[in-house]
Amino acid sequence: MSDELYVVGYDGEHKRAIEHAAEQAARAGAALHIVHVIEWSPYRFLTPQELEERHKRRTEESTRAETEVIAPVLEEMKSRGITATGEIRYGNVVELLAEIAQKRRASAIIMGRSGGSSFGGRIFGSAAMGLAQVSPVPVTIVP
């Protein structure tokens, strides 16, 4: 077993990124750190009603992410004998994945590609494209 670590960006939908990461990790004896990012900006405008309910919503969102996104995947990795940890973060997916990879000295980032053919994605670029440009480590984009 190597001490290599792959950071995996997982949005809860693109299971193929997880699959690919698991295969790679099994082959190299690496560990996985699965990150679920909830898009959030501290500069977004909220109505007073939304301010009031923010903490409640956040608790609901994190709980849902924990039980429905991260926990099942960690369970599955464990059953396959792959060392995996999970993390839920709020913010910009590109910035956070790059930051976490750097902090944890990961050797690669693996993430899925969402809406590859969408109009918006083509104009503004997707998260995967953004990450490819700023990542401190090699990025694998899983279609």
């Binding site: 405008f45 109505t47 923010r54 913010g91």
Partner: peptide
Amino acid sequence: KGDYSNPEDEGEVSHFQALATALSG
């Protein structure tokens, strides 16, 4: 600017947001 914001509070109401909402009123 968030210079003193606790990173664990990501996703909570930031100082900026409270100010912006109050200002829009």
